[in-house]
Design a protein around this nucleic acid. Structure first.
Lengths: 158, 158
DNA sequence: ATACCTGCAAAAACTTTGCAATTCG
DNA sequence: CGAATTGCAAAGTTTTTGCAGGTAT
């Protein structure tokens, strides 16, 4: 089937990114990157470890951390932050924005096309700071939390 | 002459915020909030602890963590994230933006007035998500890193 | 072949918690 | 006074590191 409009098969895309970055293509790296590209939430290192462990029993947490770190440095993925103080990862490296729920702390993606473009030319200079790109985070209340008075749902998507 | 009604003396502003939030005003809380409001960087809990310890020897790390947590919940300050995975705090709660250096990971403030307003009415609705505010992060290269010859795809020296 | 990776286990870094004493309102 | 806050110390999380052996290019 032709599922995703943009990113093809996560495994194929993972391979492509590893190759493009000139990084060693080991089973562990393939598995970690494929896992991340196959989901749209923003998993923690631990969640990635758990998921990858099912396909690659014996992979170690240390490897997951090291690999995520290497990928982040090379720009294969992004490290982001939810309401808590745990590192989270996002396989999307294209321009897109985020919706942050002030009630439950959940963070979800928002296509760049949903917002008007900022009139900031790439390469613009702001006080000596050369601008390459930008990201916007919209703060508000998500649909799940809209109904409830105060109690956050016990099943958010952080 | 309108005396900039925004942040005056950090201690005064701290007092005002504590009172407005209806939080107990203890020496520890005054010290932590005053310290944070008196600096423009985004210190970690540990850095705040160190600084406050000089004025209030004996304050415990646990108190600093608890107090920062309480303040964040009540909106007296914001929790943010640098390149690393350590919780950081920002005394500014008004709309302002950030400049993120892709080389060194440094994050600095940018006045909201430096960017055009996004035409997003507060209260707008985006797929069931009620929007209250937004923040923009500009990615690029800071002045300090501009000189370095690290990985200059195109570094014309202006 | 050899430089880079991985697993393991221990350590470090960061944050939270239980409780008794103290302080704020 | 009664309720909330603090310190201390211990426990819980999350992330990093040193090595020996294994693997990719």
């Amino acid at each position: 089937m032709g599922p995703s409009p943009i990113e093809a098969d996560p495994a194929v895309e993972a391979e492509r990114r590893l190759r493009a970055a000139g990084l060693a293509r080991t089973p562990q790296r393939r598995a970690v990157l494929t896992e991340l590209l196959g989901r749209t939430d923003h998993p923690t290192a631990e969640q990635i470890y758990e998921a990858v462990s099912r396909r690659l029993p014996g992979i170690s947490r240390a490897t997951v951390y090291r690999v995520l770190d290497a990928f982040t440095e090379r720009g294969l993925l992004n490290r982001i932050q939810h309401a808590d103080s745990v590192g989270r990862f996002d396989g999307r490296v294209d321009r897109h924005h985020h919706l942050l729920c002030e009630r439950c702390g959940g963070l979800s993606d928002l296509e760049a096309s949903a917002l008007p473009e900022l009139p900031i030319p790439a390469g613009a200079d702001l006080g000596g700071f050369r601008i390459a790109d930008y990201r916007i985070t919209l703060h508000g209340v998500c649909p799940d939390c809209s109904g409830d008075a105060h109690d956050p749902p016990s099943n958010p998507t952080p």
